[in-house]
Nucleic acid binder design. Structure first.
Lengths: 204, 204
DNA sequence: TCGCATACTGAACGATTGTTCAGTATGGTG
DNA sequence: CACCATACTGAACAATCGTTCAGTATGCGA
């Protein structure tokens, strides 16, 4: 099919899936080798060490996300609904069902490694500029603390991914699956446009 | 100081701290024994296995949270500001600074073990009833999907705990520390009462 | 055809893991 | 004092971990 060796790709694919499912520490190089139908030695040959493989998987996932955020950046001046529907959710719904990417994103954000920090920073910057554009265009209210507000939206959006299993068992639909995503987005849009709490009789 | 053995408590304390810092898999029983100044055998003697110790730590943390949520339940008919300030944040600010509890809560919610699921369910139920009470009292708008809205608030609140380090590096203040908590709560209250987005010219 | 780089195997290594267990120290009860 | 339950120690155990390495297979340029 191609000149690039099949073994290398199979190793990365298997590692991505297993890392996402069980976490880096709970997966041995022998598990990965067995899942990829290669020997343990081949992993060391291609990636030097288990940590080298981890970095390769990290880079691959981040590269995937970068390829997905570029079109989102181009749509900065587009309709506001995209942002309200959820920034990260918008990215993830482009993935095939059953993709290990959301679960790997979880590990990436919560393991404290530099790749996750860099990803969050990039997304935060993107979220800030999107919100700025919307505010200038009259699609978003002005804020006394635009930075905190952008982080607030971004973090809430990621929370849906981090805790989607808990959400699913609480309200009955998984926000990472199509129908659950629509329900979750509807609730978020409603909350972000009309508010949730009613201020205690203040004269504005 | 007391009739209960000091060794047992020291083991649980050390395990709680180390588990919170590094995660269960990255901590060995020898690490715990060294941190508690006991022998490895004593851990097995008291808890049977490493997993037994983990369950004991889980139970202790959940017991602590239960003791903190009871007064919150009693204040259901109280002022709305408590909920808007953040449910989980309200709990965590009762903890001493540098407490390993927030980090352990992270592991509890994301490791997928039953203790974490039970804790989320209990908090979700509490959040739902609080929001119901506020809606009935006119402090919250009516919602087309009260369950999803309660989960939305709850999840957003937990997200602040799960991602507080990313937030701190993005906006400069850590929402788990006093000043950062005030800033974050102010942004959340503003978003939840006045909204963020402006609907595209609809006649209501 | 020779030579060499690359892909790949699998046994072996030392280190670390959780667990077991025989043995010591202690303090209250008969 | 004798007895025994309990707290506690630390060496030893088998299993598993990531890594190393000598050796085989393959295919391409000289």
């Amino acid at each position: 099919m191609s000149t690039t060796p099949a073994g290398r790709e199979r190793i990365v694919d298997a590692a991505l899936r297993l890392f996402a499912e069980r976490g880096h520490d709970a997966v041995s190089v022998r598990d990965i080798a067995a899942a990829a139908n290669v020997s343990v030695g081949l992993i060391a040959h291609h990636f030097g060490s288990k940590d080298g493989l981890r970095r390769e998987v990290d880079a691959q996932v981040i590269g995937l996300f970068d390829g997905m955020t570029d079109p989102a950046l181009a749509a900065t001046s587009g309709p506001a609904a995209h942002v309200a529907d959820g920034f990260a959710g918008m990215l993830l719904q482009q993935l095939p069902p059953g993709s290990p990417i959301p679960a790997y994103l979880r590990r990436l954000l919560l393991s404290g490694d530099p790749a996750g920090r860099a990803l969050f920073q990039r997304w935060y910057t993107l979220s800030t500029s999107l919100l700025e554009g919307m505010t200038a265009a009259g699609a978003a209210r002005a804020s006394a603390d635009p930075e905190a507000r952008a982080a607030f939206l971004m973090v809430n959006d990621l929370a849906m991914i981090l805790l989607h299993e808990h959400i699913a068992s609480a309200i009955g639909t998984d926000p990472l699956e199509p129908d659950g995503a629509a329900r979750w987005a509807a609730g978020a849009v409603d909350a972000y446009t009309h508010g949730i709490f009613i201020p205690t009789e203040e004269t504005p």
